[in-house]
Computed example of a mutant assay.
Amino acid sequence: MERGDPAHVAINAHLLSFSDSYRGAGIHRYIRALLEYLPQVSDHRYTAYLGDPRAKGVTWTGINARLAPFSTMSPLARAVWEQVFQPIHLVRDAVDLVHGPAYALPLLCPTQSVVTIHDLSFLLYPAAFNRGNRLYLKLMTRMATQRADGVIVVSEHTRQDVMRLLNVPASHIHVVPNGIDPHFRPLPADKVRVFRAQRRLPERFILCISTIEPRKNLTTLIRAYATLGDIEHKLVIGGGRGWKYENVFALVEELNLADRVWFPGFVQHDELPYWYNAADLFVYPSIYEGFGLPPLEAMACGTPVITSNTSSLPEVVGMAGLMVHPTDIQALADAISRVLTDKALATSMAVQGLARAEGFSWKATAARTAAVYDALLATRVPKGATHVIPR
């Protein structure tokens, strides 16, 4: 194979989940977008390794989907496949480059490799994670970033974290922001009205879409909402239960808000635009994000956004939303009150949000990812020669 010719690129898609749970959120969306758009923006031959048995029969144009003979939905099974079976497949399938889209690569990797780091929350906020999950992520991420030919990060903030916490040189890191699906857009009022009736959504409500886990800071949102008193807006927190979520539900009971705060559970991706369109305001008080897709999706639907002024969220929201410190309950309550009572402000935020969201697309994400592949593949050493990872 000559340099510049189409290469064989494999993507470890074992975190692609078809379950109605938090596993079908952020990283799942990232992997799915790569599988959909990479064949549209590059001429490489793509193979996707899958581990969810429910993926049987699922196809993507231009992708050779390979389903593992056993389920890898459990962390242990997935780790075994990644470290034992994946290297064998890479050799047998004559892969030129493998992409680990979520933190991990095989330790004995026979090909060039790229790993994506979405955030380092498990290093910065270890108490928010279960011990086993935290230790695995810490170990695999450190080893993957040291062994990979290239490291992709989803924001400039994450790039800084990876340089500072993992000692990866800046020249080795590529910032490729996440994108947004085109069906996130303002919808006709009559369709939103029908959906509201079908799902029995409140007539007026504040929305938060988030996995229910400590880092998402939902207790601050609930306390801020409680200070607003008996307003007409309900609070709707949509998302699957992640880990350490019990105190969120306990707080709602403690504050006697059970009839005003609704947890509808995991929201299907195809329905999300309707939820955003139906809401008067979207609030995302996360303590730390590597990117932060929900605020971007809400803005693309024309919904005003309030979020935190920390980590990568200012990169995503820009000047289109209101930002407050994630631990300042009163500041969050004041911001919510401002948007709900100032129609001109809400309208201005909606317009600015739409303009901001236009700068993000999954197709652009795929194109920039393919450009990383191309840059690394251009350094390929001919077969029979010794491969030296550039640093």
Rank of each mutant, 00 (worst) to 15 (best):
Arg223Ile: 03
His157Phe: 13
Thr307Glu: 10
Thr347Gly: 01
Ala55Asp: 01
Phe205Thr: 06
Thr145Arg: 00
Ala104Gly: 08
Leu332Cys: 04
Trp243Arg: 08
Phe266Leu: 04
Gly51Glu: 06
Pro169Lys: 02
Arg241Thr: 10
Leu139Ile: 12
Phe282His: 12
Val283Glu: 09
Tyr225Ala: 14
Asn309Met: 03
Ala300Gly: 04
Gly132Leu: 08
Leu322Thr: 01
Arg54Thr: 02
Arg78Phe: 13
Ser42Glu: 15
His387Pro: 05
His233Gln: 13
Phe129Leu: 04
Phe195Tyr: 12
Ala367Ser: 10
Asp230Pro: 05
Lys363Glu: 15
Arg241Phe: 07
Pro294Leu: 01
Val153Asp: 13
His157Asn: 14
Ile306Val: 03
Ala320Trp: 00
Asp119Arg: 11
Phe282Gln: 02
Ala298Asn: 08
Gly57Leu: 03
Pro285Met: 13
Tyr284Trp: 08
Gly292Leu: 05
Pro186Glu: 07
Asn247Tyr: 02
Val154Glu: 07
Leu90Asp: 09
Trp60Ile: 00
Thr369His: 01
His157Gln: 11
Ile152Arg: 11
Asp161Ser: 07
Ala371Trp: 09
Leu218Phe: 06
Ala375Ser: 15
Glu246Lys: 01
Phe360Met: 07
Phe282Asn: 10
Glu156Gln: 14
Val192Ser: 10
Phe266Trp: 09
Ala148Ser: 15
Gly265Asp: 11
Ile11Gln: 02
Tyr288Lys: 15
Val316His: 07
Gly302Asn: 15
Arg199Pro: 01
Leu251Ala: 15
Phe282Tyr: 15
Pro169Trp: 08
Ile389Ser: 11
Gly229Cys: 00
Gln112His: 03
Glu253Met: 01
Asn130Tyr: 04
Phe70Arg: 15
Gly242Thr: 12
Arg147Met: 13
Gln40Ala: 06
Thr307Ala: 14
Leu16Thr: 00
Ala279Leu: 07
Pro390Gln: 01
Ala300Gln: 06
Ala333Lys: 02
Ala65Cys: 15
Leu272Gly: 10
Leu166Ser: 04
Lys244Glu: 12
Ala68Tyr: 06
Ile209Glu: 08
His172Gln: 08
Glu246Ser: 04
Leu120Thr: 03
Val154Pro: 02
Ser337Ala: 05
Lys363Val: 05
Gly239Val: 13
Val248Glu: 08
Arg29Met: 00
Arg200Lys: 14
Tyr136Cys: 09
Glu82His: 00
Asp328Phe: 04
Met1Asn: 13
Val194Cys: 00
Ala33Arg: 08
Val162Cys: 02
Arg134Pro: 10
Gln40Arg: 12
Tyr22Lys: 08
Ile212Val: 14
Val388Ala: 01
Pro87Tyr: 07
Asn256Met: 09
Gly229Leu: 01
Arg23His: 07
Arg92Met: 08
His44Asp: 12
Lys343Ser: 06
Gly384Lys: 12
Arg196Ser: 10
Asp20Phe: 05
Tyr288Glu: 15
Ile306Arg: 00
Gln112Ala: 00
His44Phe: 11
Asp342Glu: 03
Leu281Thr: 03
